[in-house]
Design a protein around this nucleic acid. Structure first.
Lengths: 216, 216, 216, 216
DNA sequence: TATGAATGAGCATTCATTCAT
DNA sequence: CATGAATGAATGCTCATTCAT
């Protein structure tokens, strides 16, 4: 008896849609005003579903937040290009990856906004909501580490990985910082220029690394 | 003996101290839990002063937030070294400045935390609280621009300023991003390493700029 | 069996009863102490229902006041006899009507008390609550005008209506004034005597009118 | 040793003026919004004097109300003509008196408004504030009784007084009712017409009384 | 005589949550 | 699966009043 994925009944499908509507409303509100600033009444109003339904689908407000973050984190990861799909010269691969990241930042700022806001707001209150956030960030860092590792030319795999990791951390920092700058000083900030500068920096690091490696 | 600027009476001095106690409590709480997450009851409990007194010193919660931010922004600026006090070679100056910035980040993280949290949380609610934040950031950016301008060697002052400004933006981004990384992935993040990487990047940019300038 | 106007479920019936309990408590309190003098806590205590329930049934205190007034106005009108039901000689009809009015005043003074108090207290604050009051008074004035119109004997319908209207205004004034006298100087005031005097006055007016009409 | 009314010192005069300013502000506010609807903060704002000063001049809010009412009642009585000053035929005397009353109603509605509002609002809370109100009304009723008594021609002084008293009560009722009508249905109410009607009624009563007296 | 600062009880209202249907 | 009614704790804020100066 195989576990055949039976298609949901009409009733179930309706339930799934309701859940999704609540999740979408909560995501938008929490990304805008934070967790404490988002009332169940506001979610009810925005989703169009009665508050009772919200508590049918989610145990409580905390659980709703967790689902919101999990979904947002999953989508954030989906938006980033897979490192394996990148080809060409090192500089080209970096360029492609950073372009994709900058584009994701510009087009779907709500996810990063949500992640940053919640992680700042909830750190000392309840850290369970930070788990999926950390998991997602770790995944992104690993992807970046893999990318840089593939571009470095050190003979020592251990030091290579360490250098790649440092580059990855640096890239993530610039991305976060760029988002905040874009968010806070939108008029005076040129997001693309910042990513260009980062690309230059990373390319230079790579070149230095290549030179150091050939010295050996 | 003219009656200029009479010193405050005992009662007035007490009032000033009360105000300061409320402000300190509110700053700590809002930096930790955000604006919406900080209740007046919590401020009352933490400051030890009755809620009526809070409303005697501040018109409402919004006004309290504004005062909190203004004080935090002022202290944040005070903590940063003045560019004029920096001496030595370009690399040394950058190093000194970044060291001071990293130290401020490590020792007094609450101010940046507050600034980032509030600017994310309140953006779409009420932007008046963002005014002192933007003012402080602009001041820091200008200080950085001056620093880099003094180290660049372009003959064209206009392009020099433009380059210095881009470097300043970049540095601020890395600083913000570093704070977030430090905050979110404390175990896996090496703040000093990130600032070292930024220093390297900036030094390389400067060298490239020097080379480009001598080409002319 | 069509599904028209289904009877309320047990829960719904309970809700209606709750609403009615709140309304009754608020009516009694507001008629006694006015709008500003009636706290939600007092309504909660008197009705026995939690404050949250009050806000479930009424949007806010203002809306509760409006409902209170609407209900009171409706009952006030119900208490007054319909002019069409009056028979007999003019003097008898007037007597019957005034008796009913005096009785209503004595038995259910709360409604007039509420109407007078609120209309004095809220005039310059928010006049929406005066709308149902004005509507009710207009209806009473029209009923009185009809009554007097039926008793007058002027050949000119226009002047007849104008005279009837003046009599109606006058009767309403004496009724209001009688209530206040009854309220303020209860010991020294004889409500029935006042209504008797009014009846005499109105009868005399009618006679004068008849004489004037026959002169033509 | 006569009780020479020494003129107040400058300091005292200032105090009297402050007291008067507070009283004026409180009168206006309480006549508009009632006692419960008038906060000390509002009196402070309207009078321009600090709340501490209000409590220096008046023991508490209740005492302030009492002073407000006493002053208002005194002025209300002052505004009415003395019955002894009235001369001429009975009808003329009534006309003069009612004209003065109607004028007072139109020109200084705040006093009646205050008296009616407070007496409705405070009846069941604290009746001490009703004492000066009752005293003032009694005085007015007596003045009216004297006026009518002088116009009546009954040989029996006891019955004469009783009739005069009934007329006085009736006149007061119409006056109060006229004020309310003027207040509530200003557009549709003709205050002068109502007073004219009352005058007619009173004159008729007097004539009837004269006829009845001569019958004896 | 006057007053600005303070106080805690009380205010109207919203909150997250429960539950009978 | 869904929902409208209910609940009482907690919210931001105003209140009448006190008191050192």
């Amino acid at each position: 008896m195989t576990d055949v994925a039976r298609s949901p009944t009409r009733r179930e499908a309706l339930g799934i849609e309701s859940r999704q509507r609540i999740l979408a409303a909560a995501t938008a509100l929490m990304a805008e005003r934070g967790y404490a600033g988002t009332s169940i009444a506001a979610v009810k109003k925005k989703s169009g579903l009665p508050s009772g339904s919200i508590y049918w689908h989610f145990e409580n407000k905390e659980a709703l937040l967790l689902s919101v973050i999990e979904q947002a984190a999953a989508r954030w990861i989906e938006a980033l290009p897979d490192t394996e799909s990148l080809t060409g010269l090192p500089e080209e691969r970096i360029q492609t990856f950073l372009n994709a990241a900058a584009q994701a930042l510009e087009e779907r700022p709500e996810f990063i906004r949500l992640i940053l806001l919640i992680s700042l707001e909830r750190r000392d209150v309840d850290s369970t909501s930070l788990v999926p956030i950390r998991r997602a960030r770790t995944l992104v860092r690993e992807r970046l580490t893999t990318l840089f590792g593939g571009l470095l030319s050190s003979p020592d795999p251990k030091s290579k990985d360490s250098v790649a990791r440092r580059f990855a951390d640096f890239a993530l920092m610039v991305a976060d910082g760029a988002f905040i700058a874009h968010h806070l000083d939108r008029e005076t900030t040129d997001l693309r220029a910042a990513f260009d500068l980062m690309r230059t920096a990373l390319t230079v690091f790579l070149d230095e690394n290549a030179a150091a490696a050939s010295d050996v």
